[in-house]
Structure formats: C-alpha cells, structure tokens
Design a protein around this nucleic acid. Structure first.
Lengths: 146, 146
DNA sequence: AAAAAATGTAATGATTGATATTACATCAGA
DNA sequence: TCTGATGTAATATCAATCATTACATTTTTT
C-alpha cells in the first residue's frame, strides 16, 4: 500500500508558499489550482499542518505562512503531520496469531524490533530532506529555463 | 497508510515452515490455524511466494517447502513478493500538478530523487533481516521457556 | 451595518484495496 | 475411486482516499 498523496501535496504546498509567498496571497484556491486537486482537500491538509504547528492560516482574510524557517522543516515533519499512521506503526501486523502455537505465540515479539528498525531507517532518511532543498531545486529549474 | 499484513503473515508462514517443517506437513489449513486467518488468504500469499520463486507448493498431496536456504531469504524478498506496489513506488504522487505553474511543472522532477532515496533506505534495511534471523529468535524463545 | 472573500468542517458519494468467506474445479496419492 | 489438498473465481464487508457540495464562521472593506 502506498503512502497517501497528502504527503507530496503538503510538500507542494510549502514549495508554493516559498516561491509565491512574496507576490501572492497563498489561499486554498490558489494552491488547489497549482496542485490540481479540490480546495477542500487542501484545506484539510492545511489543517493538519496547522495542528502540527508547521504553519499558520489566517481566517477571514486568508493566507498561509510558515511558523519557522523552511530549512528547519523536514520531510519527516510533514509526513508525521499529514499521514497519520495508526499508533505510528508502518507495518500492519496480523492481529490474532494463535497463542497456543509456539510460532504464533512469539512471532510478534520476535519481529517488532526488526520492523521498528526498518521504519526508523526510512524516517531517518526522511529527516535528511527539508522544504528548503525542494524550494532551492525548483528555483534552480526556473533559473535554467529562463 | 500501513504496509499490508500480508507481509507479516508471509514471514509467519516461513517461520512455521522452519519450526514445524520436519514434524508436520505444512498445509494452508495448518498455517491458517497458527496465523489465525482464513485459509484462502494463506493460499493467495503462498501463490505470491511461489510466483516469486521463494517456495514450492505441492498440488494434490499438499505441503510447502522453501527453494533455498532461509538465511538467503530476506525481508525484502518477501516484501517484494507479497506487497505489490504500483510500479514499485512507495509514495503516491498527486497525478496532475498544473504544468502552467512553475512549481507544479517542476515538483515531480525535483522530488522523485529524494523519494527514491527514502524508499531505498527502507529497502536496504529490509535486506538486512532474513527468515533465519526470525526462526533463530523463535527457537531461542522456546528454549528459554522450556 | 452589509458585502465580499476566505477558512473550517460536516455530509455524501465514488473508487479502491484489504480481508473474509463460500464454492467448486483440479490434482495426487492411497 | 475416494480423500485430502491446492488454485481460483465470485461475492461481501469494511476502511481509506479523494472529490464535491453546502454552509456556518471569520475578517476586512466599503
């Protein structure tokens, strides 16, 4: 099963805030038009980012701003905000192995540590990339094609 | 979104094959009873493992065997066999960013490499663990509690 | 005070994937 | 031939994603 597109959409949101923030007011309609999804989807994601403390959203007047420097916002921060895993577990373990079976009785305990390591490897790699990396790369793309 | 329990079930299958393989015939009913899911689910997973070349399943008579030593079967092998990702991509990218927007036009190219690195970090960690590791740990659990 | 523009959010629907279950054709060995 | 097993189609339930409509609420502007 894939990780929800909410994640890439959220990164896209931040990129728009950085690239267009000075010249435009960043509304959900504005974002929806760049990302090409429904504005309500954007608003839900903005809510999640706001709840995670990553952005502030102006009611009434509209507009979105980051609460800290974008080189301090990692992919992992965004992932946590937007892709709520049940109890934070990446792997879905089958619920009820047979406790009367020597394997069923121990499989969970034996695998948990290994699965946690795998999840951690992914999360640590996610922490290496920031919104600033994405914004810089896009700026470079734009500079080249000018 | 979580990774399907087919993955942990498949590991459980291999563990049963190793722990019980000498004393019992490993049928889908036998496995279903230890894992506590429907036998048809097990048969589907066995099919996937067979298609991936990891096991052989005897028709008619029944029974399952591995095609190679279990210290040569990694979590990654099992994951690939069982959790078919669309085009192998862990992340679901929003499909149609606006090509007329400077951000929408470049976001995909700019992010793809980073997402691939994250996915690779996870896959490389998966390659570190084998079925033998799991089986050994279970044997140790059983030795202690005897 | 009213209008305009935007957010917050509930409600509904379509679609997809996971899992469970029934049913039955097929296969191999006794 | 009978029995026990696999292979697989068909169907159902459930949860999650994403789209969409509708509307209450908030803030600024006029």
């Amino acid at each position: 099963m894939q990780i929800s597109s909410r994640f890439t959409i959220a990164i896209h949101v931040f990129a728009c805030m950085e690239i267009f923030g000075e010249d435009y007011k960043i509304t959900s309609d504005f974002l929806a038009s760049s990302i090409n999804v429904n504005p309500v989807i954007i608003r839900k994601i903005l809510s999640q980012l706001r709840n995670a403390g990553l952005i502030e959203v102006a009611r009434g007047t509209g507009g979105t701003t980051t609460t800290r420097s974008i080189d301090q916002i990692t992919f992992y921060d965004v992932y946590l905000a937007v892709d709520l895993l049940e109890k934070g577990e990446l792997f879905h373990f089958h619920e009820n192995p047979n406790p009367n079976c020597p394997v069923g009785n121990n499989i969970h305990a034996v695998m948990d540590g290994k699965l946690a390591c795998i999840q951690k490897a992914m999360e640590e790699e996610m922490k290496k990339y920031t919104i600033a990396d994405v914004a810089d790369d896009i700026k470079q793309c734009l500079a080249v094609t000018e």
